[in-house]
Design a protein around this nucleic acid. Sequence first.
DNA 1: CATTTCAAAATCATGCACGATCCAAGATGC
DNA 2: GCATCTTGGATCGTGCATGATTTTGAAATG
Lengths: 219, 219
Amino acid sequence: MNGARKIERVVLGDQVYEAIKERILDQAYAPGEKLNVDGLARELQVSSTPIREALARLVAEGLVKAEPFIGFATAPLPDRRYYEDVYSFRGVIEPWAAAQAARSRPGPDVIAALRDEVAAMMAGEPSREYRSHRGFTEADDRFHRIILQAAGNQVALKSYDDLRFHLHISRLYLTREQDVGLTHQEHFRIVDALEAGDPDAAAQAMRLHLEGSYERLIK
Amino acid sequence: MNGARKIERVVLGDQVYEAIKERILDQAYAPGEKLNVDGLARELQVSSTPIREALARLVAEGLVKAEPFIGFATAPLPDRRYYEDVYSFRGVIEPWAAAQAARSRPGPDVIAALRDEVAAMMAGEPSREYRSHRGFTEADDRFHRIILQAAGNQVALKSYDDLRFHLHISRLYLTREQDVGLTHQEHFRIVDALEAGDPDAAAQAMRLHLEGSYERLIK
DNA sequence: CATTTCAAAATCATGCACGATCCAAGATGC
DNA sequence: GCATCTTGGATCGTGCATGATTTTGAAATG
């Protein structure tokens, strides 16, 4: 027929979910801060049911913790050990994904999308202001996600998505000015290897990038 | 003070969650079957609120799909492509995890636990009956999980847990009598390599086991 | 006077019943 | 036979009741 636009049926719970999620990612709440259901209901002008549904979903995503008969609270800031584990895990998955992506000979659209994200990261003004940091980390996030997507393994992609939000929170705090240049170089090498369709080079470039990221994170 | 026993706080939503989850894993519902909220509420003698909360959690775990204003339904049976992706992913994570576990020199308690699970799989009578198949797959599941745990990476462990339920469903259907012996041999080799603390042998044994599992699954 | 104890009230999470809204299917009309 | 309308049934959201938790505040003790 035609490319009919889908009538987006809006469920209240979804909107509440997005609203609360954005607040958490924006650091509007301190880590571990208690989330009052009735209070959120009043603030967002809805009943408590959609709030609870949204919070339940956030619990499943790991952004919120729930204690029976006590309530919800934002997830505590992960400890150093957790970041170790995250980067070990990424150090296994992402080089493999980069190799898979290179093997599948990514089309020019994928390469262009990756270069766009790198450009977006470079376009961010060197500033300590919050917004630009957020733009940087979001572009970096999308960069890595595009590669996972190009690898064509939906299970790996989903497992990466589960980590994204946690990383996002930490990276908001930890992006440093002097490290930006190194990050760009590493990203360029990855894109080049993907464009060349060289699996080994792509895996190696990704490995170096993640090791570099981790070094910059923990120092 | 003392080793006070924890007062198990019972939230209705948790019990409903466990009840529905067990039903799904027991194949009480066909894949894709619609889940009526009011019906479940009547069956389980509770209101619709705990039902919806439980279903929301199951949606987040991927066992249930939700469509706005239409309702909940059990997740459709994954297609062949999905299993391909799962085993590719496991083929990356689990050999690495086995190597990590071997490197950390697992204690005799871990080795004993692994041998227990292998014994549990062998103890299952050769039968087509449902219960024994279930026992087999659950022991196999625990076997792999113990190794992920011994690797000491909580991120990898969580990502494996996300796959378990889906695998559980498929394996219920697909365990074959003549394949059991091969599985045992592969498991033994893995345990031996772990006990010897040989990372390369452990990774290789795990790789062979997963390749074998996949071959047996798709034929 | 400072500190602990204990009870009562306020606060909040949880569960339930009801009304509103929306989708699906059968009936009606042309 | 096809389009439209209506009815049935289910989902979604609200308000309220209940029970658990936490805090407040006053009395009692060292």
